[in-house]
Every structure is written in C-alpha cells, then in structure tokens.
Simulated assay, not measured.
Amino acid sequence: MPPLASPLRGVVPPLCTPLTPEGEVDTVSLRALTDHVIRAGVHGVFVLGSSGEAAYLSDARRRTAVATVVEAAAGRVPVLAGAIDMTTARVLDHARVAAAEGADGLVATVPFYTATHPVEIADHFRRLRDGTGLPLFAYDIPSAVHTKLPAATVLALAEDGTLAGLKDSSGADGPLRRLVVELRRRDLDRTFSVLTGSELAVDGALLAGAHGVVPGLGNVDPHGYVRLYEHARAGRWTQAAAEQDRLAALYSIVDVGEESLMGRSSSALGAFKAALHLLGVIACSATAAPQVPLDDTAVKHVQGLLSAAGLG
C-alpha cells in the first residue's frame, strides 16, 4: 500500500460492524460491506468509528474488525482504524493492535471520563503519534466525549506534524469554517486534511474548503456521496446541492425508532444496519447490546425511505 495521501481527500465511510445474532463480528458480511463501498468509488474506509459501534465491542472483536477490513480492502483504498478509549494508555493499546493488523492510519478522540486540559490533550495526541508512527486523525465529537477539541490545539498539532487531519463531528459549522480559513492562511491545508462528519452539510463544507466527508449514511448509499463529492470537486454546485438534498431526505432513516422505546444510537445504527440488510449487503441487522432493536414498523419505514431515495 502506498503512503496515505496528504491531505486525505474524498469520501471515507465509517463502516458499520455487522454482527451475528450472538454478537460476534460477522466477518463475511463485513468483507461484503467493505467491498460494497469500495466498488462505489469511495476514497478510504474507517473501521471502528461511532457507526462501527466501537464503544460496544470487546478488544478481541475490535481486532477482528480491523483485520477483516484490512484484508477485504486489499490495498485498494487506505484503511483508517479507530483507537477510541478513555485514557492514553488504553488508546495506545488499540493503536498498536490496529498498526499490527495493517491499518494505514489511526483516528482517536481526546481522553474522556475525566475533564482534560488542552495541554493534556496535546500530550495525548503526541504520545499516540509517537507510539505507532502511523498518520493520526483527531476525532472531534463532543457529544460523546464532552470536550470540544480546541482550534488552537488542532493548529499547533497540525503545524508540528502530530496530526494528519481532523474528523469533525462537532456539529459546529462556524468554528469549523474558521479553522479551515486559518489552516489555509498558515498554508497547512495542503498537508492537513479536514473531513466533515456531517451527512447533511457536505456541499457547504466542501465549498468552504474541507477535503472530504466521513458519512455514516455512506454505508447505505456510498454512490450518492461519491457523486456529491465529484460534483463539488468539479464545481457543479447545483448538482451537488441536489444530491445533498436527496441524501438529506434519506437521512431521515436515523429517526425511525420510537423515542419512547430506544435511544438515538439504537435508532440510527439500527436503521443503517436494517437498510444494509434490506439491500442484501449484510446477513443480519443486529446491533450490539444493550441497544434496542428496531421493530417491524420501523424496518418498514426504512424500506420506504430507501425506495424514495431510489435504492432497493
């Protein structure tokens, strides 16, 4: 595999992790899913992100997922592996396993559970980068870790080469735009990759200067996100907006689960997996415990939204 592109550009779906009814990683389905998105023209894959249920999986299952995706990708696109845990020591363990299994890059959040100072955050990422030598992407997801990654820290770690890029799932479009502007001003945008984690505002992020997108919905409709990205790269903004509008309507699948019965993670990840099962990509739509499975009514709603989007 050639070195990871700098900056990494394009569509990099955060792969779901198909499971058996018993909760084991369904390696056959995971290989099929990896092939499904690569054949659609994506530019990389990200295993063990939020859409991959990394937080729910045992260490052994995480390792199986990374090894399976690396094998299935077979050098066709780079594989980013999530190394997500509460402390630096735990994250380093995951990072070294991912490196040993052949991942091309790592994705990590700030430490969590206890509040973390910017000095500690910077030290955390520097230790991770030194621990494996792999390109490292910061994952800004304050909804999960309860800390917003400071822009000043990102800029400092971009300048000293600690970070190869940022996956921004903060939902804060204004601060992201200001970060992109400052990266450009410092001439860092030529080497540091900004990837939006928003499925719904990809066209705007690309217009602002982001390099790509990491869309959970890209598991279900990778072709759509590839078309959107290609329209944007070619300056076809009207077509990009139309594709974004279609994907925004499809994204309604994340809300099919009844709120009185389940959390939003159960609804969203259950819907992604139900869609993949309906499309014949994976064998089983099971999610990891203790998430609540979708009922038949919700699955029928998923089917209707797939049909409306021109899928299935």
Rank of each mutant, 00 (worst) to 15 (best):
H211S: 05
V77F: 05
D93P: 00
A115W: 11
V214H: 06
A5Q: 12
V42E: 11
A103N: 04
K148L: 15
E259N: 05
L157E: 08
A60W: 12
P293C: 13
D26T: 04
G171E: 15
H231K: 05
V66G: 06
T238Q: 13
G197M: 01
L261D: 10
A65K: 07
T109D: 06
A309R: 04
T116Y: 03
L183Y: 07
M1C: 11
R31C: 13
V12K: 08
L183H: 02
A72L: 11
A309P: 09
A95T: 08
L305V: 00
A65C: 08
A172I: 14
G105P: 02
V145Y: 14
S50Q: 01
L294P: 00
T87F: 03
E71S: 13
A232M: 05
L166V: 04
R61L: 15
T287K: 08
R126F: 02
L30F: 08
L128N: 03
T34G: 06
V45N: 06
Y251K: 12
A98K: 10
G270I: 06
L279A: 01
S267P: 03
L30G: 03
R178C: 12
M262W: 08
V281N: 07
R227M: 03
K300W: 04
A122C: 06
L305H: 12
L149Q: 10
P215Q: 05
P135E: 10
A152H: 12
P111E: 13
F137H: 00
G171P: 05
Q239T: 02
G133C: 05
L134S: 01
E259Y: 02
D93L: 13
E243K: 01
T191D: 07
G235W: 00
G216W: 00
G75L: 07
A286Q: 14
L305C: 05
A205G: 01
M1A: 15
R184G: 13
R233V: 11
G75S: 09
G270M: 03
D26N: 00
R129C: 03
A309L: 04
T68W: 01
L33W: 02
Y56T: 05
S267H: 08
G82C: 08
H231N: 06
D221Q: 02
H94E: 14
L276S: 04
R246W: 12
S58R: 09
V226P: 05
S169A: 12
G310S: 09
F192V: 14
L188N: 12
L207H: 11
H277I: 10
E259F: 06
A289K: 10
A241S: 05
L247D: 10
G197Y: 00
E22I: 04
D123W: 02
D130P: 00
P2T: 09
V28D: 15
V145P: 06
R127N: 04
A201H: 14
A268P: 03
R96C: 10
V256A: 04
T153Q: 06
Q303Y: 07
R185D: 15
A99K: 14
S193M: 08
P290E: 09
V66R: 04
